Computed example of a mutant assay.
Amino acid sequence: MQALVLDGTNQPVQLREVPTPQPGPKQVQVRLHAAALNHRDVWIQKGQYAGLKFPIILGSDGAGIVTEIGEGADESLRDQAVIINPGHNWGDNPAAQGRDFTILGLPNDGTFAEYVCVPAHYVQPKPAHLSFEQAAALPLGGATAYRALFTRAALQPGERVLISGVGGGVALLALQMAVAVGAEVWVTSSSEEKIEKAVALGAKGGISYHTAKWPAELAKQAGGGFDVVVDSAAGPGFGNLLDAAVPGGRIVFYGATQGDVPMLAARKVFWKQLSLLGSTMGTEQDFAGLLRFFDEHQLVPVIDETFPLAEGEAALRRMDQGQQFGKLVLKIIY
């Protein structure tokens, strides 16, 4: 089969012929129609991820057709259009993943290929209203956003939500779901164009996070602070989120792209009765809830650009530049 292979740190992915994987016991083989990128793929390529091993086929997100059935797997899955849950071996505790938790695309070969094999219980029917490209854009980012909003922050209709750094896949999926559930959503970005696009998706408005004292200015626009704040950056600007939250607010963060928080204003946290909630990926129940939510509300993930598999390196570089609005997708079958 054709696959994009990463041979080492700071190397470009290369399209080459590799053996087609065959399903083991209780596994299925999926003929991938589309795969999607995540920042995780860029971090692995740069060597900024734990458990590196090479060569590796990157890619956590994918959708396609089940073509082969391993021993003990459900034969009825054959020829079914499926979406792959990339979070494997969560463990028995729904509150946090266990030591054996893995994400497809490292340590096991992922979806930047014509075929992938996964345990059969990690494939679910592709939402009928989504194309393969749209379905491929959903799994990792969607599960992350769903768990952050609903499992961790317990978002309720009518609450005011702030989503920082809108434009990335998780942030946009969180925006779409929060709007669909009846929340009032506001955003931050360094780009006025991205804020305008977020408004077109249902956000009430937004502000550049380069604006001086932006939490106070945004609160004036919104008519108050925010019940739920969703963040992926952390870093030096995290203190602004403490200011943006209402007393009793919940701040849920699923990443630290700007690094650790250098100084935390502890007094603001305890005096405002804030909850700081970490979140990573999602359980199988979170993933099932995500699919039900997208089906019920007929939501469609935002796709920034679609590339052929052979141009996977160009797609990775676009992600690295951070200019995208929505998911970057590799179309494998035309």
Rank of each mutant, 00 (worst) to 15 (best):
E71A: 15
Q48D: 08
A120L: 04
D100W: 03
L58E: 12
V82M: 05
G98L: 13
T111N: 00
E71M: 15
R78Y: 03
N89P: 06
H88N: 05
V179T: 12
L106C: 12
L77A: 09
D61V: 09
Q48M: 15
M177T: 02
G182N: 02
H88I: 13
R160Q: 13
I83F: 03
G47L: 11
P125L: 13
G72Y: 07
A63Q: 06
G168M: 08
M177P: 03
R99T: 10
N108T: 15
G110Y: 04
Y146L: 05
G51R: 03
Q124I: 11
L58A: 08
G110V: 04
P94Y: 14
I56S: 00
V123G: 10
I69C: 04
L155C: 13
T67L: 03
H121G: 02
V170D: 10
Q80H: 09
I69K: 07
T111Y: 02
I83T: 06
G167Q: 12
F132S: 03
A143P: 04
L173K: 00
A50M: 10
V116N: 05
F132R: 01
I83A: 02
F54I: 10
P119W: 00
P125T: 11
V170P: 05
L140G: 01
V185Q: 09
G72F: 07
P157W: 06
D79V: 04
N85A: 03
I83S: 04
F150R: 01
A95C: 06
G47K: 03
G62T: 03
T144Y: 00
A73M: 06
A178N: 04
L58K: 08
R78K: 15
V161L: 11
Q176V: 02
L173A: 04
K126Q: 14
L173Y: 00
E133M: 13
V82F: 00
H129V: 11
G158T: 06
V123H: 07
T111I: 07
F54H: 11
I56P: 00
A135P: 06
G105L: 08
V161G: 05
Q156F: 05
E75Y: 15
T102I: 15
L52H: 06
V170Y: 00
S60Q: 05
L104F: 15
A183G: 11
P119I: 06
D79K: 12
K126C: 13
V170W: 04
S76R: 08
I56T: 12
N93Y: 15
G91M: 13
F112R: 04
E133W: 05
A128W: 05
Q134A: 13
L175Q: 08
R99H: 13
F150M: 13
P86L: 10
R99W: 13
E133T: 14
P94R: 14
G87L: 07
A137Y: 10
T151C: 07
G72R: 14
G105K: 03
G62S: 09
V118L: 05
H121L: 11
G64Y: 02
A178T: 10
N93A: 11
Q176H: 03
T102L: 13
V161S: 03
L173W: 01
L77N: 02
E114V: 09
G72K: 14
W90E: 14
G98H: 11
Q124D: 01
I84D: 05
N85Q: 07
G110R: 05
I163G: 06
L138A: 06
D100Y: 12
C117M: 08
E114Y: 02
Q97S: 15
T67A: 01
R99Q: 15
Y146E: 02
